[in-house]
Design a protein around this nucleic acid. Structure first.
Lengths: 243, 243
DNA sequence: TAACTATACTTCTATATAGAACTAAAGATG
DNA sequence: CATCTTTAGTTCTATATAGAAGTATAGTTA
């Protein structure tokens, strides 16, 4: 019977939603876990079943939870590390969209440039981890990535053996550092490739490239990763529905 | 007491939602109109108020309706003609994002090319309206558009005086042709500008440009407009949130 | 063993009811 | 006339209850 706190005069189902959100943020409920049933939650927090239901439905809409008829309610396992590739018409020769391989070129501690420090909310003098990756499909380089992580939250990432880092980084952040990437903002522009990038991607210098800046955040909006990806513009393709 | 039809064994609230959707599709309820209250709808269709509510909420989620506390439920007035410009960092010199002016260069009946005919579901030998527009901000050309409309649905558009066509086309389609654009799919790529496009946009020939193909559809998915827009890539900027 | 059955869980659908919160307009008051 | 009050409409919140429908497992039967 944990009474609902946050006692502003918000509707009860919203305060309940906030309480449940906190359970996930503070990792008492982890991705993949099953929550108590809606009846149990209602009893636990002292509200009617319908009210508990309304809170749960809202959190599903936010993408935090997932419900399955007859099975239960689960903490959603975020999964959009590879979603970068929705911007590109890259797929393997057999036509299947697979996760591309990746080759880590550099992984060091470093002082972040100003705009990265601001995005990641790193204090003056605070450290960061800097990484450079090349992603390949069928051995062909398609995207070059520059990645920055806040040192205080992600320090343990430096201890992971390179062999243990697969093409997907977010599961590693989750397991090693206890930080779950829940959402991200992305920003796309077109530029001319600098000589170094052109060499990495095997393009002519000055060829147009798509630059994607991404800021990944945790459940409570803490910035967890800043990433800049570059790929050949002639392979760029984005499809969306608007209403 | 219009009984719910579509008698598959779908849940009642979904069949009700479908019935209400039809009211909008068949223009008995027009954009801006207020619907009967949730109690009245429940009585009309012979369901409980909560069930009517559930149907209405779903249609709000789909973007078809809009509800206002204490005022009523309304058919949403779609409004994304200018949304093209979310892809570009174009705004007037005063910093305000305004709707750009537009200059119609051509408006004629013509036979559509194959891929357009397929997109618009135009039968062999079926006609189309072809239009070419240039859009400007502060007198500067920023986007060139090539537009195709299916003749059978949009014939009356040819009769509209050019002076009566503002920068926004969709309200004209709605008022003159009785066709409401409810949603659209867009597809973005990067290309090198052809000489003619470069001249229109005052770029060097071969400069990279963003090409946006859009297919606009009505409430019942009927294709209403095919549009290809071209703008300078160095002004391109797209921002999105993913989860 | 293999296939069916019963059972105990879960979420989902549907109903009914009561009052709060908000909006708009008609009516009363100064 | 201007301002406040009442009133009738709307959606929104919250509760309670009953049963349908889906899932997983333990138990039974052939």
């Amino acid at each position: 019977m944990s009474a609902l706190s946050g006692d502003t005069r918000l509707p009860r189902y919203q305060r309940l939603a906030e309480a449940l959100r906190q359970e996930v943020v503070e990792r008492r409920w982890k991705p993949g876990d099953r929550l108590p049933s809606e009846n149990d939650i209602a009893a636990l927090y002292g509200v009617a079943t319908g009210t508990a239901r309304q809170a749960l439905v809202q959190l599903v809409k936010e993408g935090l939870l997932k419900r399955e008829h007859g099975r239960g309610t689960f903490v959603r396992r975020p999964n959009f590390d590879q979603s970068l590739f929705r911007f590109f018409r890259f797929w393997a020769k057999d036509g299947v969209r697979s996760v591309p391989e990746s080759r880590i070129l550099r992984r060091v501690m470093a002082a972040p440039p100003g705009h990265v420090a601001r995005s990641l909310r790193i204090e003056d003098g605070g450290g960061a981890i800097n990484m450079s990756r090349l992603r390949l499909i069928d051995g062909e380089p398609v995207v070059a990535e520059e990645i920055w992580l806040p040192l205080d939250l992600m320090e343990k990432f430096l201890d992971v053996a390179e062999a243990d880092i697969g093409p997907l980084l977010y599961p590693v952040y989750d397991e090693v550092c206890g930080q779950t990437v829940a959402r991200a903002e992305e920003s796309l522009t077109v530029e001319s490739s600098a000589p170094e990038t052109a060499r990495l991607l095997r393009l002519e210098a000055g060829a147009p490239i798509i630059v994607i800046d991404r800021l990944a955040r945790g459940y409570d909006d803490t910035p967890l990763e800043w990433r800049r990806s570059r790929g050949a513009a002639d392979r760029f393709h984005y499809h969306t529905e608007i209403r």
